[in-house]
Computed example of a mutant assay.
Amino acid sequence: MNINLPNFNVKNLVKEAGSTLSRVVQLTEEKLGTTERTEYDNEFQNLAERADITKAWTEKIVRDTETVLIPNPQNRIEDFIFEKIEKTKPQRLSNLEHLALDMIEAGGDFGQDLPYGQALIKVGQAEQKLGQCERDFIASSGICFTQPLRKFLDGEMKTITKERGILETKRLDLDACKNRVKKARSMLGQQTAERELRVAQAEFDRQAEITKVLLEGISTSQASHLRHLHAFVETQVRYYKHCIDTMNNLQRDLAKLRPAKPRLRINSEDVDGPPNTINHSIVHPLAKSNDFNTHDFNEFDDNEDLDNFHTIDINNDEVNVDENHENTSSTLRNQSNNTNPFATTDILEQYDIEFDTSAITSV
């Protein structure tokens, strides 16, 4: 049985192993401070520091934006996996859409013809619209902002990191060659070391130039990031505008379903009262009398207004109505003589009405 083994170049393997060993030795001596190292110029160092800052903050901005768009970390991990395996992301309902479906279903069970059921259905439909707006906002934000920034990190920034790593390797080789030149004792050994030093110096200079060009390109990348940021803000503006329009429409629809408030008439002025708070036990006793004639009050000429307006006795003392009309009139006159102008406080507080009691006078 013949087995074809790959052809290894033993010479290159030994050479690479020797280079790796010399780099480790050089790096260790630098950490210990027993040898010198080649320093980069100030311009290159500034570019490198700027690249590190750009990378760190861009990664954080992308993470934070994705956290805002998709708060559930499990969903973010799931989406990331589907992107890596190039599969379609699952269509999951958002929290708003779950709430919308429950409201619509509850409204149907409570009764579509009842006020509460109608209101639940309308609110649920509005929540559905908000959920769709949110879905569109997430998709648009990914296209115009997070995806370009992540592409920058996975493409240009990874290339810069790789080239900087190669440059550091070339620097270690260069410094190792410098140390070998210093340590060479024989003329032959010194010539060999100097030749390796020249080669290492050329490779280092070439790699430093390549890395510097890439670092300088970060300024152009940030100009693109600025355009992406503007697009993200515009997407947010559209999203919140759609949300506001949806909620304003919902508010108008719910206002149409709200029952009308009862109305009070105090000192010939119409005042809105809270819903369902009319206490018919405090209706003026004349309204309970069989001899009461609505035409005695010109404010109640309209039957519809009569149904919506109530005359309220603002006195605390209960008025007793006798069967005899004359006794009733006498009782009312006696009662009016003892009218307390401050007895309206309880009624005003019940209806949450600010009223100047000084305007009430006794007859």
Rank of each mutant, 00 (worst) to 15 (best):
N46G: 07
R206A: 11
P90Y: 14
I61G: 01
D322Y: 07
Q74F: 13
L47A: 03
F300H: 10
L215M: 11
K11R: 13
E216S: 05
N340D: 15
N12V: 14
Q125P: 00
D41K: 05
E66W: 04
G111R: 04
N279Y: 01
M157F: 06
A231W: 09
Q132I: 09
E323S: 13
H310K: 09
R135N: 06
T294F: 10
K256G: 00
V62R: 08
N95D: 14
T88G: 12
R180G: 00
I121T: 12
I121M: 15
V363H: 06
E323W: 07
N2A: 04
E349P: 00
A223T: 10
A106N: 07
S289C: 05
T246E: 06
N2T: 10
L167M: 15
K178F: 01
V199R: 12
I353Q: 08
D109P: 00
I166W: 05
I218E: 07
N324D: 15
V14I: 10
D253T: 00
F292D: 15
R37P: 00
L32I: 12
R195A: 11
G124V: 05
L47Y: 07
E318N: 12
S141F: 02
A56Q: 10
E209W: 00
F152R: 03
P6N: 01
T34V: 06
N324Y: 05
F355I: 01
D270M: 10
T159Y: 02
S94R: 07
M187Q: 14
T159G: 01
I266T: 06
E36G: 06
T220C: 02
L172G: 09
S186T: 15
T67S: 10
V363Y: 04
H98R: 15
T192R: 11
E66L: 15
